[in-house]
């Protein structure tokens, strides 16, 4: 465990809590892509199956449970409690175009051909594209509430810190998890465009982020 990894996990937790509280307090999920939240819940479900098979640390177990609970709670807010405010019209990204290639690739490129390992690999590949429906929805509506952009900022920061964590672990321990690193780099690249807009528009105090 190193500071990059720990701060990355904290940013991830902050992002998830920001989104949950935004929906809960505004009693609305307008501008939020339910599909991305479903994909994240699937990522956690397929990745954290080892909750039942391997104990790593209290921290590891607690964080996995918290992420799973918050992910499913957020999905239930979007699709059940505040479903009237869910803008399914704008949340039109075809997730099958993500799920099929990701599933196929996880069978082709993995560390070992066992159910747990393939599901873990699936979750790694899926996480790198899970945010695309949300980013697509923002380009479609042409705007995002500032709180939504803060959610995306912390999510992108968590991924950037994980890259730093891998650089550190490679330097310190010679650790290199190729599947996680390649997939993580791809995922972080998707945030670059958003980061540019975030720093040039939202942080200039323009409140909403409106796309050109």
């Amino acid at each position: 465990m190193n500071i990059f990894r720990l701060s990355g996990d904290v940013c991830h937790l902050v992002a998830i809590i920001i989104l949950f509280l935004k929906i809960w307090r505004s009693k609305s999920c307008a501008g939020i892509s339910g599909k991305s939240q479903l994909l994240f819940a699937l990522v956690f479900t397929t990745r954290y199956l080892d909750l039942f098979t391997a104990f790593i640390s209290i921290y590891n177990t607690v964080m996995k449970v918290v992420f799973l609970v918050l992910a499913y709670a957020t999905v239930s807010l979007i699709y059940f409690r505040f479903r009237k405010s869910y803008d399914s019209e704008s949340d039109s990204f075809r997730v099958e175009f993500l799920l099929v290639p990701v599933a196929g690739l996880s069978f082709l490129e993995n560390y070992s051909f066992t159910p747990l390992e393939i599901l873990w690999t699936f979750s790694i590949y899926l996480e790198s594209v899970a945010i695309l429906p949300q980013l697509f929805m923002i380009t479609k509506t042409g705007e995002a509430e500032s709180i939504t952009t803060h959610y995306l900022f912390f999510l992108g920061l968590y991924r950037t810190l994980y890259l730093a964590n891998w650089v550190w672990r490679y330097h310190e321990e010679g650790f290199f998890d190729q599947i996680a690193v390649v997939s993580g780099v791809v995922q972080t690249i998707f945030y670059c465009d958003f980061f540019y807009l975030y720093f040039t528009r939202v942080l200039r105090g323009s409140g909403k982020m409106t796309l050109p």
Binding site: D9, I56, N60, M63, K64, Y111, S112, F175, D177
Partner: peptide, 10 residues
């Protein structure tokens, strides 16, 4: 190979 690597990352 990485299989025996403990997946300690979230």
């Amino acid at each position: 190979d990485l299989d025996d690597l403990e997946k300690d990352e979230l």
